[in-house]
């Protein structure tokens, strides 16, 4: 598969020349990215490079220093609070930590966005919630409280909550962490199916090269404050960029730095 030109005529999400820093530290230096509508785009990159930050920028929780972030034609950093909330009703984010509401059981967690944003009767909500829970294999666990779930279960429950209202855009932050091979397979298929059946746009942040290669239409590889590789999986595998090859093969030595920026180790050790 090659890059399909029509995918880029009306992207769902687009970043234009975005620069973002935390205090003195520049996280992104003038990056531009596109996320085509109805496709799965994966973001890969070393830990701490700013993948979660990127999702927060798209969700409007953080503001870039400069640049535009366009979601469904609206420039997120320029929106008023009310307009931003209207855009957010159509997007959804699966947090790295799950972020289930600890005071509610699994059922109420999944029902929460439905109850907040619709006036549906309880029996319809019940059906919707149980279907979402069935999809992630947790229908039997609907009465459990979040503290009674394992890490992987909590993440799946959170996934059920984030798809409760059938959003148009969904951002997954590390959905595969802590899943056994079976639930991993189920999740991969679920993300794929959601995408094809509802035609939703998905952004998946993940380190799992194999899983990402299996489902993503397009892949971004980030390192060193910018995009170092972009394309379909075939294009990336054929890429002659040593940075991309290093990442896909998981080598610690290479052009992509594995370490957080630091003075040289001998310098640090001598000082002690």
């Amino acid at each position: 598969m090659n890059i399909n030109k029509t995918d880029f005529e009306s992207p769902h999400v687009e970043l234009k020349n975005v620069t973002f820093s935390r205090g003195e530290r520049v996280i992104y230096d003038d990056i531009s990215m596109v996320f085509p509508k109805g496709k799965i785009t994966a973001i890969m990159g070393p830990s701490g490079i700013g993948k979660t930050t990127l999702l927060r920028l798209i969700g409007g929780q953080l503001y870039p220093d400069s640049g535009d972030i366009i979601v469904s034609g609206q420039n997120i950093p320029k929106l008023s609070r009310k307009e931003l909330y209207a855009v957010r009703e159509k997007m959804s984010m699966l947090f790295q930590s799950g972020a289930l509401f600890t005071e509610m059981n699994v059922f109420d967690n999944v029902a929460f966005p439905i109850r907040e944003h619709t006036k549906l009767p309880e029996d319809i909500i019940r059906t919707m919630v149980l279907m979402k829970l069935e999809a992630v294999g947790l229908r039997g666990a609907y009465e459990l409280m979040p503290n009674e779930l394992s890490g992987g279960m909590a993440r799946r429950a959170a996934l059920a909550r984030s798809i409760a209202l059938d959003p148009e855009l969904i951002m997954y932050d590390e959905p595969f962490v802590g899943q056994d091979p079976i639930s991993m397979g189920v999740l991969v298929r679920l993300i794929r199916n959601l995408n094809t059946s509802l035609n939703l746009t998905s952004i998946v942040v993940s380190h799992d090269v194999k899983e990402v290669m299996g489902i993503a239409d397009y892949i971004y590889i980030m390192a060193d404050k910018r995009v170092i590789g972009y394309g379909t999986k075939e294009q990336l595998l054929e890429s002659d960029s040593p940075l991309v090859q290093q990442f896909l093969k998981g080598l610690a030595d290479g052009p992509v730095p594995f370490h957080y920026p630091a003075p040289s180790i001998s310098q640090d050790l001598m000082q002690g």
Binding site: A86, R88, F95
Partner: peptide, 18 residues
């Protein structure tokens, strides 16, 4: 504070709930 630390407040915001 705990709701904040466990990202429950952020996730409310992302669900368009203030």
């Amino acid at each position: 504070g705990l709701m904040k630390a466990t990202e429950q407040l952020t996730s409310l915001e992302m669900m368009a709930v203030d």
